[in-house]
Design a protein around this nucleic acid. Structure first.
Length: 498
RNA sequence: GGCGCCGUACCCAAGUGGUUAAGGGAGCAGUCUGCAAAACUGCGAUUCAGCGGUUCGACCCCGCUCGGCGCCUCCA
């Protein structure tokens, strides 16, 4: 089966045919490291992590490049504010980025170039553009002449006349055309600068991605990704620069993810309606619940198609958690040794698993339809639960368990060891005021030892045996207050979970 | 002003020119249970913002209207 993906360039779903059979080369715009990343950044990283994982699941070898913009006005401003060297800022937020992505189970790309490490590539490209007559110098700055690139506007569906008509930017009158964008910016007093043919300066934002993608993946590569807010002007500019420089096709498939919104509005710094990954994770009172919240966030983000916007609200995480609990509950039952179960319900297993695999691939092959894939998981859950009621052998349970782990892998869910999963916690996020980042996330948790829990259960079951139900109920209630949930089995034994 | 996206049950959310319109959360009822919990079973949109059109047939295609949002400035 072939994978089909929506290509912004052609505005339709295209069958994916890689440049080199069996391999995928992909470049994704990373973050500018001047602050902690929020859910919106996480969504982009997660979308392409899922795409990468699924390609690998489908047998491709993936070259995945995601950059860091580590020199930029925002970084310089922040450094000025804090009165620290600019690279302290970028280094700090690169580390924070890793920490947050780690919690979300986002795997590291195969290469993570930083703009400052590719200064020579950037300079070469600008010089090349200047030689081609498509870039011009202006008092130490270098600009790209948009009019000289005929295909400008093709990706975003904009044309120059309309852009000019609607331009609300204050026009730099020195530029040949208001739409021309900076390739190189001359360093102002006190600002860091790199030597160049035009004097000390630093690269413009757009050229970095062109230079780094071409340096890492060559002039033409398969997929270029990013948030849909980057389509114009960032990706439009990248195409112009790269094609004008190499004379070859740039990215073959353009993939863009939708926004995370709050009250239907795009989550962003300027509106102040953002939730950082850190503030969500930090509220977790028990250290090892971070992975759980991470998976819940992942499940939540994957429960909407990557191209749609999704609205973050107070119920988002609790709903994801409840849905995941049902599957981890099944995993728990599958891991139990079981009581004298005669395998009576295994007859349909083969066809159930075959169906599942087929539907899973069908969903993901169709433009990475993760919400559909999750639905397929829940359908499997129902089928397996029915089988378990009838009785299933230990070997079969193990086999099913492997399926959940294996197919959960491309989505990055159901990967937590059962003993670390906590059924009792409910991550609740409360946004008190509209358009602010006020978050109160409460996770009620305590951590009684397993021995103590087993002991309590034994006491309770002794009471139950003597029909002393009030004592039994008291014990159950006390355990419940500690986040321990009891489930009595038909044979008189008791299962517990946190 | 230009370009574009979205509106599916109480909430979240897939989807197709003819299907029983997935799945999750919440809810209700039943089975099971000492009671619970879990699991299972059943109920829940005769309908896909509204109105027209195309069609043998549209929620899906086209047009308009209403409502929401995005890009055009840094933005994942």
């Amino acid at each position: 089966m072939s994978i089909v993906l929506y290509n912004t360039k052609t505005k339709k779903k295209d069958v994916f045919v890689p440049l080199i059979p069996g391999q995928v080369s992909m470049y994704v715009c990373g973050v500018t490291v001047y602050d902690d990343c929020h859910l919106g950044h996480a969504r982009s990283a997660l979308t392409f992590d899922m795409i990468r994982r699924y390609f690998e699941f489908a047998g491709y070898q993936v070259k995945y490049v995601r950059n860091f913009t580590d020199i930029d006005d925002k970084i310089l401003n922040r450094a000025k504010q804090e009165d620290v060297p600019w690279h302290d800022i970028s280094e700090r937020y690169i580390q924070n980025f890793y920490r947050d992505m780690g919690a979300l189970g986002i795997t590291k790309p195969t290469a993570e170039p930083r703009a400052t490490e590719h200064m020579q590539d950037i300079l070469n490209m600008i010089e090349g553009l200047e030689k081609n007559g498509i870039a011009y110098q202006l008092e130490g700055d270098v600009y790209f002449s948009v009019k000289k690139f005929a295909l400008y506007g093709q990706l975003s569906g904009k044309n120059l006349e309309e852009l000019q008509a609607g331009a609300r930017v204050e026009v730099d009158t020195r530029k040949q055309d208001p739409m021309d964008f900076a390739l190189w910016k001359a360093a102002k007093q006190g600002e860091p600068g790199w030597d160049s043919p035009w004097g000390k300066g630093r690269p413009g934002w757009h050229i970095e991605c062109s230079a780094m993608s071409v340096a890492e993946l060559g002039p033409t590569f398969d997929i270029h990704g990013g948030g849909k807010d980057l389509i114009f002007p960032h990706h439009e500019n990248e195409i112009a620069q790269s094609c004008a420089y190499t004379g070859k096709e740039f990215a073959r498939y353009w993939v863009h993810n939708g926004f995370v919104t709050v009250d239907k509005e795009k989550m962003s710094k300027s509106l102040g309606n953002f939730f950082t990954i850190r503030e969500i994770l930090d509220k977790s009172s028990v250290s090892d619940s971070e992975a759980i919240i991470g998976e819940c966030l992942r499940y939540y983000l994957l429960s909407t198609h990557y191209r749609s916007d999704l609205n973050f609200s107070e119920q988002s995480l609790p709903e994801a958690k409840s849905a995941m609990d049902t599957i981890y509950g099944l995993i728990q039952r599958l891991e139990e040794p079981g009581v004298q179960e005669q395998p009576a319900g295994e007859g349909d297993l083969e066809s159930i698993l075959k169906q599942f695999s087929h539907k899973f691939h069908e969903s993901m092959d169709d433009d990475f339809n993760s919400p559909k894939a999750l639905a397929v998981f829940h359908q499997l859950r129902g089928e397996i639960n029915k089988l378990l009621v009838k009785g299933v052998s230990k070997e079969t349970k193990g086999k099913i368990l492997e399926i959940f782990k294996k197919y959960g892998e491309p989505l990055g869910i159901f990967q937590i060891d059962l003993r670390d999963w906590k059924f009792g916690i409910v991550p609740t996020v409360k946004s008190t005021i509209e358009h602010t980042s006020k978050v109160s996330l409460t996770i009620k948790l305590v951590d009684p030892t397993e021995e103590w829990i087993e002991q309590q259960i034994q006491l309770r079951n002794e009471a139950r045996a003597q029909k002393d139900f009030s004592t039994a109920d008291t014990i159950r209630k006390e355990l419940a207050e500690q986040g321990i949930i009891l489930e009595d089995r038909p044979d008189g034994t008791t299962r517990w979970k946190r």
